[in-house]
């Protein structure tokens, strides 16, 4: 019995098809990472699974009464809203003080309850978001590039935390990343996405798949390989992805990188 499943879903923004014929399902307790270059529809896939964006075709099914914890890519809180960490943890469901403290302890933010959310650093904010997600006692944790904006030690720490949470609670984890190192180390299953599912399997299987190598470049790892893929190969939808990229900062990254190569 899967927790959440997508059955041949397509997602369109206006005329452009961002996701084409994607089928996947998440089993209890597994860590699944969606991997893909900027504009490949990773975030869109998560958002379609969560019901944030509508699917044009196909369907998304959830297990009955699925408890879901969601950690977005980042959360911008307008300074006009006063909000302590403790109060934030009680949204949308009010939680007891003891539970809130336990959740803050769990993510290494003991004693931060009285802080204003707007005063948190990027890493603290992600931890607060995780603490809030954990309070739902989730069967499935959904994380959208949760370490964006963190430095490397912060990032490694965050993923260790996720792994520990999985061990403690048995929650399945579905996350999006474009960081190859992390993904390869920490996932049970990797789904390689570029508008459609290029390949999937264990990290070992995926890293030797030709589709994966085409997408991320052969032999090299890290940022450079990531950024080169669009220019040295013409993978199916790759051309259109600049246009359909819907995250402003992603687009910015892409633009900058195109200039670098120009």
């Amino acid at each position: 019995m899967s927790l959440i499943a997508a059955d041949h879903i397509c997602v369109r923004y206006g005329e452009t098809e961002v996701l084409h014929d994607v089928t996947l399902s998440i089993a209890p307790g597994e860590i699944v990472t969606i991997l893909g270059p900027n504009g490949s529809g990773k975030s869109t896939l998560l958002r379609a699974l969560l019901g944030i964006v509508p699917v044009a075709e196909g369907r998304v099914t959830r297990a009955d009464g699925l408890r879901l914890g969601y950690v977005p890519q980042r959360l911008h809180i307008d300074r006009s809203m006063p909000l302590t960490v403790r109060r934030f943890l009680s949204l949308p469901v009010r939680v007891a003080d003891a539970a809130a403290e336990t959740a803050l302890d769990r993510v290494g933010m003991t004693g931060f309850g009285a802080r204003q959310m707007t005063d948190l650093s990027g890493g603290q904010m992600q931890r607060a978001l995780l603490a809030r997600a954990l309070l739902a006692n989730p069967q499935l944790l959904v994380l959208d590039e949760p370490t964006q904006g963190l430095d490397q030690p912060g990032e490694a720490g965050f993923y260790r935390l996720i792994e520990a949470v999985r061990q403690d609670t048995g929650a399945a984890v579905l996350m999006v990343s474009h960081d190859l190192h992390v993904v390869m180390a920490a996932s049970d299953r990797v789904i390689c996405l570029n508008g459609h599912i290029c390949c999937e399997g264990t990290p070992r299987v995926v890293s030797s798949a030709p589709e994966y190598r085409a997408l991320f470049g052969l032999g090299t790892q890290g940022a450079l390989a990531l950024y080169q893929h669009d220019h040295d190969h013409d993978h199916d939808h790759a051309r259109d992805h600049h246009a359909r990229d819907h995250h402003a900062h992603d687009r910015h990254d892409h633009d900058r990188h195109e200039h670098d190569h120009a």
Partner: peptide, 18 residues
Amino acid sequence: QRLLTATLSEDLAHAAGI
């Protein structure tokens, strides 16, 4: 509670079924 959550983040609201 629902108004606050939706004001804070529409995505968080959606994910919580709001």
